[in-house]
Amino acid sequence: MDELRTQVQEVFREVFADPEIRLHDQMTADDIDGWDSLMHINLIVALEKHFGIRMATAEIARLKEDGQNIGTLLQLVAGKLPRA
């Protein structure tokens, strides 16, 4: 999971143009400057491209709901990666 977190963090830094971003599980969209609906889609597109995965409409929408955080996002990405 640590390797995955590092890679996801790199994608976040690139999308939000902020090299200082450090991800932890409890972080939400409110903790990252500029994470609005538009940036949410940009982030998803970048994650899909980086990991070669595809997220469903319902999954993308659910990530914006209350109670969702970086931990949920990492689990979602991890669940879509081919098992080693």
């Binding site: 609906s37 889609i41 409409t57 319902a58 993308i60 929408a61």
Partner: peptide, 8 residues
């Protein structure tokens, strides 16, 4: 609208 019109 956000999920099925704007997002796609």
């Amino acid at each position: 609208i956000r999920d099925y019109l704007f997002m796609p």
